[in-house]
Amino acid sequence: MGRFVLRRLLHMAITFFAMITLMFFLFRMLPGDPTATVISPALDADARAAMQARFGLDRPLIEQYFVYLASLARLDFGLSFRTSRPVWELIELRLVNTLLLILPSMIAAYVIGAIGGALMAWYRGGRAEGSLVLAATALQSAPVFWLGMLAILVFSIWLDWFPTGHIVTPGRFPEPSWRMYLTLDFLHHLALPFLVNTLYNLCFPLLLMRSTMLSTIGEDYVELARMKGLRERQVLYGHAMRNSLLPLATTLPMILGWSVAGSVVIETVFSWPGLGLLMIEGITRSDYPVVQGAFLLIAVLTILGTFVADLLYGLLDPRIVYR
């Protein structure tokens, strides 16, 4: 077990290193002179050179790369071209915002999806089950940003129950701070994106759980559990559902990583100041250190998700032998 974890950790390190390298060179190949947005071309050559030196853009690419690696190790993502402040300062709260939206809604989606899918399989064959499968597939097929737009149209514009976007009422906190998470205003803003994201992400675990359960129900051990005189509820939760949870549980961390990556879309619709929106803003303002920082953090979460999924698979299923 220890060796297995160590190996997976090593793999993760390699993946991460490759990612950093790839991204570094990719960003350096971006078209246009990134310094142009902060250093006015009207400045004389000396002043421009001074600015370039300040951002370290005058040194050879390979040297920039090693400096970059060293600073990453210190969690130093460089300075924003636009604000000249450390990127990490910008990212910190954005990361919290993204996680506060994504984590609870993914957990809710998985809990509801698992139980709902199990019950659909248990009471299979009815008309209700058929319509639920159709509804879940349709929902899964709709683009999530469109669902968000419809939700805003109905619940914010027509019914006026929820605000149309942002994390708190604009102007209430001139400077983002930790205190804003403790307000009811925050929860009021969180509600709609949370609901839309939960509803959308619920479909995958729901349909997966249903199909896994359908094959588990036919297993001999489920029949034997019933023969042993267990109550139906015990057979459902203790055997059929318990065993069907395995494939589902192992997908959670990976899907979590993916949905952090996918949060770009939902954050854009609801103007939710998370990592994804930060990245989009960075691109439109050519603020590449910010884009790169946000991207790397999203990548870390994705890779971490895959890693945890691998470990979880081994932990939950005793038949897996660690190599």
Binding site: T15, G262, A299
Partner: peptide
């Protein structure tokens, strides 16, 4: 695995911007 670690939509957007 390396490609599996690439954040899907953000990666595509960065490439498009580039």
């Amino acid at each position: 695995d390396i490609f599996l670690g690439l954040p899907f939509l953000p990666f595509i957007i960065v490439v498009l911007a580039m």
